[in-house]
């Protein structure tokens, strides 16, 4: 038995230590935002944050998640009343096609903007492109929405930097 905090709420989970965090979230906690894609940390659909750092939840054993760890899924990134800048940009740019990979895409994009944009000196367009290339190449989209993903990230970056998109 261990307690993890998922999107701000405590959950007692009583599972084997080698159960991937993804299945704990989906089957035990009922947080179905993170998706099962490849199961080997190659596609990014299962991306969540553990203690504010992105991880591939399909490849992280619950036994390796610290007692009391703070897990954030797409559901906890923003609220319908106060969307995260990346979520708002996703809607603005109508990024999703089938949508399956999008929770992971949004979590990866939000991590990038948190580290490199929010409260930081403005990045040049080329530097932002470079960071997007690094941050998002590990998140696959079979529908090929990459151009809209890039546009939405730039739009969210501009808003977070206090600039007009």
């Amino acid at each position: 038995m261990r307690v993890i905090w998922v999107d701000g709420e405590p959950h007692k989970v009583d599972v084997e230590g080698d159960m991937p965090l993804l299945w704990v979230l989906r089957d035990e906690v009922g947080a179905t935002g993170p998706k099962y894609g490849c199961g080997i940390a190659m596609c990014g659909a299962c991306t969540v944050y553990v203690d504010d750092r992105p991880v591939r939840s399909c490849s992280l054993r619950i036994g390796d998640v610290a007692e009391g760890a703070k897990v954030t899924t797409i559901r906890g990134l923003g609220t319908p009343q106060a969307l995260h800048a990346v979520q708002a940009a996703w809607i603005e740019h109508q990024v999703a096609q089938c949508g399956y990979c999008q929770p992971g895409q949004i979590m990866a994009a939000a991590a990038l903007l948190h580290d490199k944009v929010a409260g930081k000196p403005p990045l040049s367009d080329a530097d932002l492109d470079d960071h997007i290339n690094h941050a998002m190449s590990a998140n696959l989209c079979r529908c090929g929405t990459y151009m809209r993903i890039r546009a939405a990230i730039k739009s969210a970056a501009a808003k977070l930097q206090g600039q007009r998109p």
Binding site: R53, S59, L60, D64, A108, L112, A138
Partner: peptide, 20 residues
């Protein structure tokens, strides 16, 4: 990079899944 550290994918155990 902070937004994509090695441990984003490389967790604390060797993956038991082929190609993991």
């Amino acid at each position: 990079a902070n937004y994509l550290v090695c441990t984003t994918c490389h967790s604390k155990q060797n993956s038991a899944t082929p190609h993991g």
